[in-house]
Nucleic acid binder design. Structure first.
Length: 403
DNA sequence: GCGATCAGCT
DNA sequence: CACAGCTGATCGC
């Protein structure tokens, strides 16, 4: 969980992912994604009052994050103060102090973070240097090297500071199976069960948070079975998700929730109440997505573990593994790095011992040593076609995982 | 009645 | 098991 205070040293007049305390005086706000631990203070009366007396204060986020946020009535008061910025489109923002009139220009670029729908990293460029705030992210090895906007010409930009998602910054999380491996393992389990009869159904025991949508979309796409969910109005302008979820309980894949859904399952009942169909009892298995990790030497393993007669755990991670984190940071090679998260097992000093040697200022044996900055490997060609009128755009998933 | 915080529990 | 929350109790306004 994020413990980032909201502000970066280089640009203290902006606040990112924190909206309480000192952040109440920010000249501009940024939201990396729609998870509650990055939204502290976002609906507090103090901030609401400040908005009412200002025409200038804005919240910047991706189009998908804006859509998800404004679907909740609790955040409707932000409606006229949100600016959706397209991903991978550098934008000039003028930061003006409303009382003194003092101004500062900054350029911000949203980069896809692969954490949940709409999730982005923020790249800030201005008079105090270039700063990358990663928010929460999962990027595979080599993905930073393929991001054109992290580069200037063929070389990686000179980045002063990275504010990093250090959730799995511990060698014990060395390897987490890739998103593709996890997806295909889950797909084959769901396929084999749902093919038995139409009364064989799967319950995906997902936590209540955005991030599982690409799983739903890919399962639905491959098997032609829509996924039952409690609510889908937040996706009304995201056709590529909306098409694959349903509120009709008569489907073989469920990701619905109930306050006591584990009890439902033990009673051979789905959280939505379904227990039989046409007088035939349902045969239900549960699959619980959870992070599985492996030390350095493990080569290959099963991403599905059977935990009971009809219960399974399946590998799933919203965050980069230790080796992915090291690849990311050692490619960027910033001067400074600041952890956004204290990993479960370790303290801040332990994390810094791992991260500092990957930064540019580090000199082994105090010997000045030059290591060249990275170079752009390959520009990822994206499908830039329109996704339809009224749609929030093509950036719901990172390009690689688009349906 | 609302929000903030914490224990307990997925 | 570790992802991000929910619910309910308590306290202060």
């Amino acid at each position: 969980m994020s413990r980032f205070g909201g502000r970066v040293r280089e640009y203290p007049s902006v606040s990112i992912d924190r909206f309480d305390r000192d952040n109440l005086r920010a000249r501009a706000y940024f939201l990396s994604h729609c998870h509650k631990d990055h939204m502290k203070g976002l609906r507090a009366p103090a901030l609401k009052r400040r908005l009412e007396g200002s025409l200038k204060v804005k919240l910047y986020c991706s189009p998908v994050t804006k859509e998800l946020l404004l679907t909740s009535w609790k955040y409707k008061f932000w409606e006229n103060h949100i600016v959706a910025l397209e991903v991978e489109t550098p934008t000039q923002i003028s930061l003006e102090d409303e009382t003194s009139g003092e101004k500062e220009d900054i350029e911000v670029t949203l980069l896809p973070a692969g954490h949940c729908p709409g999730s982005v990293m923020f790249l800030f460029e201005g008079a105090n240097g270039t700063v990358l705030y990663t928010g929460d992210f999962r990027l595979a090895k080599g993905e930073a090297a393929r991001m054109e906007l992290l580069h200037s010409g063929t070389r990686v930009k000179d980045i002063q500071s990275v504010y990093l998602d250090t959730t799995f910054c511990d060698p014990k999380f060395y390897h987490i199976p890739s998103r593709e491996e996890c997806l295909s393992g889950i797909l084959e389990l769901v396929r084999s069960w749902t093919s038995l009869t139409r009364y064989h159904v799967v319950w995906l025991n997902c936590k209540a948070a955005y991030g599982y949508e690409y799983l739903f979309v890919n399962l639905s796409e491959e098997l032609g079975i829509k996924v039952h969910v409690n609510k889908l109005d937040m996706f009304r302008n995201m056709p590529e998700i909306l098409y694959h979820v349903t509120t009709d309980r008569h489907t073989q894949i469920h990701a619905c929730r109930h306050p006591r859904d584990d009890d439902c399952f033990r009673g051979n009942r789905l959280p939505c109440g379904m227990t039989c169909q046409n007088g035939n009892p349902l045969h239900i298995i549960s699959i619980k997505p959870s992070t599985m990790w492996f030390g350095e030497r493990i080569k290959k393993t099963n991403v599905i573990v059977r935990t009971g007669e009809s219960t399974y755990r399946a590998c799933f991670s919203f965050h980069s593994s230790y080796s992915e984190l090291k690849d990311f940071l050692s490619y960027i090679r910033p001067v400074n790095v600041y952890p956004n998260v204290l990993p479960v097992g370790g303290g801040e000093d332990k994390v810094m011992e791992i991260l500092k040697p990957l930064c540019r200022s580090y000199r082994r044996n105090m010997e000045p040593r030059y290591k060249p900055l990275g170079t752009l490997k390959r520009v990822h060609k994206r499908d830039l076609s329109d996704t339809g009128k009224g749609s929030v755009g093509a950036s719901v998933f990172s390009p690689k995982f688009s349906p």
